[in-house]
Amino acid sequence: MRILVCVKRVPASGGAPQLNADGLDVRHLAFTVSPHEECAIEEAVRLVAEHGGSVTVLTVGPVEADEQLRYAISMGADDGVLVDTGTGELDPQATAAVIVDAVGDLETAAGPFDLMFFGNESPDAGHYQVGVRVAVATGRPMVGGVKGIEVDPGLSRVRLRRDVPAGVEVYETPLPAAVAVKEGLNLPRYPSMRGRLRARKASATVVRAAVSAGGLRKVRLRLPEEKQSETVLLGHGAAAAPAVVDVLQELEVL
């Protein structure tokens, strides 16, 4: 089976974000793919190990996103495609249109993808819609929030598990299909030394794309007001237990 995994180069989240005049100050940040997308890569690599086929990783962004493609290849993906749209942030309609064009080219060249994986949402922009737009434009069904995937042996259908507040929903869909996955789907591997060496030698395909803007335009980013309050120190070690229980009673949770 042919699987496409779409990934996005995003700043690694650690401390509080710093803003400058241009938006997020990324000078001191490392870049990564999101935990959701790491799970997507892992799942694709496992499915291909079981059923045969290949995993292609696609990213849309600046040329530096080559780093994320190589990471995916070091985890076991077969090849990478980078659609260079420069450093500016694209709106979700524009991102989807660029991906749809790239998918069209890839499928014309080497046949249709049975599965397309996306992260459920990007950890930075969080538009929750790019995967659905690509799925609709390419005539595929799509389920989001997926934490379990079972492909039937005939490779014609797939069962997908999604956690909902009340429990679990199981979906069935014919292939080809698109799936947006969440962390918890699997435990992604650490790239092996062999994988790293392969990734270093691999050459990702770089294509340029014309971008036409959609109807949503970012004006600026800002920090939310954080309610500042002094932390009340209840004590040190086991001796603090009575003070803790006083607080539990005060908050009426006991």
Partner: peptide
């Protein structure tokens, strides 16, 4: 620093002590 209340100590000592106190 962001918490309303804090206890400085090892979880393995503090939580059982809180349970015992309750």
């Amino acid at each position: 620093s962001r918490a309303t209340y804090a206890v400085i100590g090892d979880v393995g000592e503090v939580v059982p002590a809180v349970v015992a106190e309750i």
